Computed example of a mutant assay.
Amino acid sequence: MQKIFFEIQIDADPEKVWDVLWSDMTYRQWTTAFMEGSFYMGSFEEGSIIKFLDPNNNGMYSRVEKNIANQEMKFLHLGEIYNGVESEQDWGEATEAYILEEIPTGTLLKIEINTTEEFKDFFEEKFPTALGIVKNLSENQL
């Protein structure tokens, strides 16, 4: 497993950043950095399974490990989805955490990812763009 980290300072309160991250409309905007047309199906309730999909119903499914509103969201990635069919993967402790820390100028958004070697380069290439979109939406959206 590879641990990778990203962070970005956003001039907006944690509640606004949280809303941008997890509201359906804005989620679809910032995740275009990974795949145009990305969306999720399911609930962000702790313990629930959520699917992260592209327009062809391909993607992955994960369990919500932690959801502390406006502070932290953590997923454990369980498997892949191809043509709508789930396929469990042996990814071990493949996790993705979003941590929002209130700072005097707004929010420090930190991403902590525990990933397999095969996905490391993808995350390192795409996440900075995604975080730039989150920052723009958080700072400029009414």
Results as ranks from 00 to 15, higher is better:
Asp121Ala: 10
Val134Gly: 01
Gly59Arg: 04
Glu101Gly: 04
Met25Gln: 14
Ser138Gln: 05
Thr31Phe: 00
Met1Asp: 06
Ile8Ser: 07
Lys3Arg: 12
Gly59Trp: 03
Glu117Leu: 03
Ile49Phe: 06
Asn83Val: 04
Glu124Arg: 03
Glu86Arg: 15
Val17Pro: 03
Ala12Asn: 01
His77Tyr: 09
Phe122Cys: 00
Phe75Ala: 05
Thr95Tyr: 02
Ile103Asp: 01
Asn70His: 11
Ile49Asp: 07
Leu21Trp: 06
Pro104Glu: 07
Phe123Glu: 00
Glu72Leu: 15
Ala94Leu: 11
Trp30Pro: 03
Leu108Thr: 00
Gln71Ser: 15
Val85Thr: 13
Phe127Trp: 14
Asp11Lys: 14
Ser62Lys: 12
Ile10Cys: 04
Ser62Leu: 08
Gln89Val: 11
Gly106Thr: 01
Phe39Tyr: 09
Trp91Asn: 11
Met25Val: 14
Asn57Ser: 10
Pro14Ser: 11
Leu131Asn: 09
Lys74Asp: 06
Met73His: 06
Glu45Gln: 11
Val134Arg: 02
Trp30Thr: 01
Asn83Gly: 09
Gly79Tyr: 11
Ile4Asp: 00
Asn140Ser: 09
Glu80Pro: 05
Phe34Pro: 00
Pro128Ala: 09
Ile4Thr: 10
Asp24Leu: 15
Trp22Gln: 10
Ile113Arg: 00
Gln71Pro: 07
Asp13Ala: 07
Phe5Cys: 08
Ile113Met: 00
Ile50Gly: 11
Pro14Gly: 04
Asn67Gly: 05
Asn67Pro: 11
Glu80Trp: 06
Thr26Arg: 07
Gln141Trp: 14
Asp121Pro: 00
Thr129Arg: 10
Asp90Met: 12
Ile10Glu: 00
Gly79Phe: 11
Lys74Tyr: 05
Val20Ile: 15
Tyr27Pro: 03
Gly84Asn: 09
Gln71Asn: 13
Gly132Ile: 08
Phe75Leu: 09
Asn83Thr: 03
Leu142Val: 14
Glu101Phe: 09
Val20Trp: 05
Gly84Ser: 13
Trp30Leu: 03
Ser43Asn: 07
Glu88Met: 14
Ser38Cys: 13
Glu124Ala: 05
Glu46Asp: 06
Glu72Lys: 15
Gln2Trp: 02
Glu7Ile: 01
Glu7Leu: 04
Thr129Asp: 08
Gly37Met: 04
Pro14Trp: 02
Val17Gln: 06
Tyr82Ser: 13
Glu72His: 15
